[in-house]
Amino acid sequence: MNLKIIDFLISVLSAALIAFATSQILVGSGGSPLLMMIAGGLLGMALSIPLMIVLVPPFGAFEVMIALHWIGMPAGMIGAMMIGYAPNYCIAVSGAAWGLFVWGLIEYFNRRYEAGRYESEVL
């Protein structure tokens, strides 16, 4: 499969998974919204580590690590803050939306650097 499509899928699906998993782990734990947000962020970061370990070897170190760094904490926070306010599929879709944003951001900057590749070849 094209690696560009894989990068897109990694970002979107990882973010959806982290948001959903965080909500499932923290559901019923109570606490103030602020505390839930902090717990979700930390849990999201923790969940991104095993994902990195699994995804880096087949799909490339920097392509996976940079994306998951920007996905872990916010996706976890999204999952935690939506507990009790939205059904599970909405939590996963919201996580996926964050993953889509991160993918777009990385793609935008990489294209900018790509465009400069040949201009910068001779210093």
């Binding site: 940079i66 990489n110 790509e114 400069g116 590749r117 910068s120």
Partner: peptide
């Protein structure tokens, strides 16, 4: 004398 500095990925590689 550095005369080529070209991006491969995100200004990292």
């Amino acid at each position: 004398d550095l005369f080529t500095d070209a991006n491969v990925y995100l200004d990292i590689v």
